[in-house]
Design a protein around this nucleic acid. Structure first.
Length: 485
RNA sequence: CGGGGCGUGGCUCAGCUUGGUAGAGCAUCUGCUUUGGGAGCAGAGGGUCGCACGUUCAAAUCGUGUCGCCCCGACCA
């Protein structure tokens, strides 16, 4: 595989691709394969990451006025069929229950691939007047989509997510909501997961089945492929019409509501894995690290041991106020083994503590993001020091990922260059005439698809008009192409 | 659904071509020495070789079938 000049995409990453993802997820004990094909078990360490993402996002969702609720896993088959595009989009990947209680069911039950239909059914009951609007609901749930090909965290048959569903009086209000939540996702990704994203609009090809407009955030993974990390849809009145979700306005007129839906899933954990790692293993951003600091005691003989462990506990107690911290006091394992173990698990900060440090009232600190060893850090004021360091690591991971994104984003104007550059992955920005066929031709050639029509472009790329990368006709839209998961 | 790979102690795998008493490393247990970047020595326990049928005096090994998982492709808000 030829290495393009400006790219830092390592050849080994290109080769390993997803086996790298599986290796990291399995080794770091985030997940395991389940006995059921395409499904995975999220292990405690992986689930702890999810809980941290979840609690942060849950607060953001509530802070923007939404309330949590829960709707059933089973959806009557007839519901799905009420919206034409929706059923066409989802039918092939639905799991359907036909038996219950030992009898064949009168109406088959679809295991939710998403909940627009059943939620609209309820909305149409709950919404009568403009005074009932906006209705702002979120649910945390599991969903099932029968995918042909699965990958740990990135695409599994069952996965966990959050789906927001809102209903509004006007189109404008609903569109504003759609963009507001997309922006929440962007903030979550950048400030919590330390992953920079491209935000934009999906082309018709990739629009959510039943939506008017689909917006997305896309992240560039370390192997050069793009990952859709979140979507937000303006649904217009499509579902409202299908489910007769109407309200009476101030003039007494009946109108259909304007709706949105938006979601992110456990795929975000896959994004973290594929963005932050090196040959030693994961690098978890402090804000979602289940263990932010691990203390490794180092001792030789008995009197040392007790003294070292006591000191470790003392430090743990102090740090516990500000951090998720843990002592690895397993006796049978050598310090060296523990260093490698916690590095593989992605713990952002490690403290090595031995007799020498204790006699000098210092500790040795090792940063996971840079590998840097910080010797002789004073025990006095350690919390403040580590709070600062933790922030710095969080920011540094984001900075590194941003640099990577910038270095692997190119503007291309002719097809030869496109084909050549796409070999090594990354984002290619170019003009596109809007014809789906043009995208298809390039997809056949390079496997790349249009990820989105970006909201913002680098300053030097602002240009009113150009020529379609595929057919060379005049084009107004600039799009981002990439190979995708 | 097509192509490929795999299935052997808890884990990673060798053994299969050319049938002949099931192996290694790691892990576990015991003892001693160790512990600042994946510790050493000595000893011990643990497997009806995915399943079924067949060939054979004899099958982890050969044949047929079957089940499962993984990978690649087709598919995919």
């Amino acid at each position: 595989m030829p290495k393009t000049e400006n790219t830092e995409i390592a050849e080994k990453d290109l080769d390993q691709g997803e086996s790298l993802l599986a290796k990291l997820a399995l080794e770091a004990e985030l997940a395991d394969y389940s006995p059921v094909k395409g499904c995975m078990v999220i292990r405690p360490y992986g689930y702890a990451i999810w809980e941290l993402i979840q609690s942060t996002l849950d607060k953001m969702i509530k802070d923007t006025g939404h309330q949590n609720a829960y709707f059933p896993l089973f959806i009557p088959e007839s519901f799905l069929q009420k919206e034409k595009e929706h059923v066409e989009g989802f039918a092939p990947e639905c799991a359907v229950v036909t038996y219950g209680g030992g009898k064949e069911l009168e109406e088959k039950l679809v295991i939710r691939p998403t909940s627009e239909t059943i939620i609209n059914h309820m909305f149409s009951k709950w919404i009568q007047s403009y005074r009932d609007l906006p209705m702002l609901i979120n649910q945390w749930a599991n969903i099932v989509r029968w995918e042909m090909r699965t990958r740990l965290f990135l695409r599994t048959t069952e996965f966990l997510w959050q789906e927001g569903h809102t209903a509004h009086v006007t189109k404008e209000e609903a569109e504003e909501e759609t963009l507001k939540m997309l922006n929440v996702y962007k903030t979550l990704s950048e400030t919590i997961l330390a992953i920079p994203v491209m935000d934009g609009i999906k082309t018709e090809n990739q629009r959510f089945a039943g939506a008017v407009t689909t917006y997305c955030i896309e992240g560039l993974m370390k192997d050069g492929k793009s990952l859709q990390m979140g979507t937000s849809h303006y649904l217009g009145q499509n579902f409202a019409k299908a489910f007769d979700t109407k309200f009476q306005d101030q003039n007494g007129q009946l109108q259909h509501v304007h709706q949105t839906s938006w979601g992110v899933s456990t795929r975000l954990i896959g994004a973290v894995i594929m963005t932050h790692h090196d040959e030693k293993g994961l690098k978890l951003p402090p804000k979602i690290a289940p263990v932010q600091i691990v203390i490794v005691p180092i001792y030789k003989e008995q009197p040392d041991k007790e003294m070292v462990l006591d000191k470790c506990k003392e430090i743990l107690n102090n740090l516990s106020k500000d951090f998720r911290v843990k002592i690895d006091d397993r006796e049978q394992l050598s310090p060296g083994w523990k260093f490698n173990f916690w590095e593989m698990k992605g713990v952002p900060i490690r403290i090595n503590l031995g007799p020498k440090d204790i006699s000098n009232n210092v500790v040795e600190i090792v940063r996971r993001d840079t590998g840097e060893k910080l010797k002789n850090v004073q025990q006095k004021g350690l919390n403040e020091y580590l709070l600062k360091l933790s922030t710095e690591i969080q920011e540094n991971l984001f900075r590194q990922a941003s640099e990577y994104l910038n270095k692997n984003t190119f503007t291309v104007t002719d097809q030869k260059e496109f084909t050549e550059k796409m070999k090594s992955g990354g984002y290619l920005i170019c003009f596109w005439c809007g014809n789906e066929n043009c995208e298809e031709i390039l997809k056949q050639k390079t496997k790349a698809t249009i990820r989105c029509i970006p909201f913002k472009l680098p300053v030097d790329q602002i240009q009113e008009e150009g020529y379609c990368i595929s057919c060379n006709k005049k084009a107004k839209e600039k799009v981002i192409f990439a190979k995708a998961y």
